[in-house]
């Protein structure tokens, strides 16, 4: 009897490992930033030219930082959800516009030849046009033109979304588009508990 039970047991263990391993998405790399303070930055806003924004401006609020770009296809997929969510007045969403011009592989301008001011102009124009077309769920958007802030946040695939608490600590990171399930099952319950904390 043991002769058959031992190989069978080993086989079942192997199947168990494969079942867990193969159902994981290797593109979802757990972020070491969850539980750590959101990296500081000062970036110019999309809507106004004279005001910068940093995460410290959101002290005392629970908020979402959503990394987006007009060239990002998955952003388009999650966008209607964000727009609907912002209309319900859930949480403030700040948009981090990530490498709007430099990240676009199909842009028909030679990015290296652009002067910084021309690039900035193009970034503003493209980002604003995209929001006008698809709706603007953001209380404000900031411009990460060269992607340096993205690196500080460990961004490696747009869209990504961070849930940040009242003390500026990152509590959750969504890699890839936000789904209805992720919003209802993870982000909103967690945001609720965070809001009730002082």
């Amino acid at each position: 009897m043991m002769r058959f039970l031992i190989p069978l047991g080993l086989f079942l263990v192997l199947v168990g490992f494969l079942a867990v391993g193969l159902n994981r998405d290797p593109h979802e790399v757990p972020s070491p930033l969850v539980g750590k303070p959101a990296p500081a930055f000062q970036l110019q806003q999309l809507a106004t030219t004279d005001k910068a924004f940093g995460p410290q401006d959101m002290q005392g609020k629970v908020w979402l930082l959503n990394v987006w770009s007009s060239w990002c296809v998955s952003c388009r997929a999650e966008h209607p959800l964000l727009v609907a969510f912002s209309q319900q007045g859930g949480l403030p969403i700040v948009g981090l516009n990530y490498k709007e011009v430099r990240g676009d592989g199909e842009i028909d301008v030679d990015v290296k030849k652009l002067t910084p001011s021309d690039e900035l102009k193009l970034v503003r124009q493209r980002a604003a046009a995209w929001l006008a077309q698809h709706g603007n769920p953001y209380s404000l958007s900031v411009l990460d033109i060269d992607g340096r802030v993205g690196i500080d946040y460990g961004v490696y695939g747009v869209p990504e979304t961070y849930l940040i608490d009242k003390h500026g600590v990152i509590r959750f990171k969504q890699i890839g588009p936000i789904t209805e399930e992720a919003l209802q099952d993870k982000i909103l319950p967690l945001a609720k508990t965070l809001e009730s904390q002082s």
């Binding site: 790399v29 757990p30 972020s31 070491p32 930033l33 690196i151 500080d152 946040y153 460990g154």
Partner: peptide, 8 residues
């Protein structure tokens, strides 16, 4: 890099 992207 590890502090941003993890041990991965």
């Amino acid at each position: 890099l590890v502090s941003r992207y993890g041990d991965f």
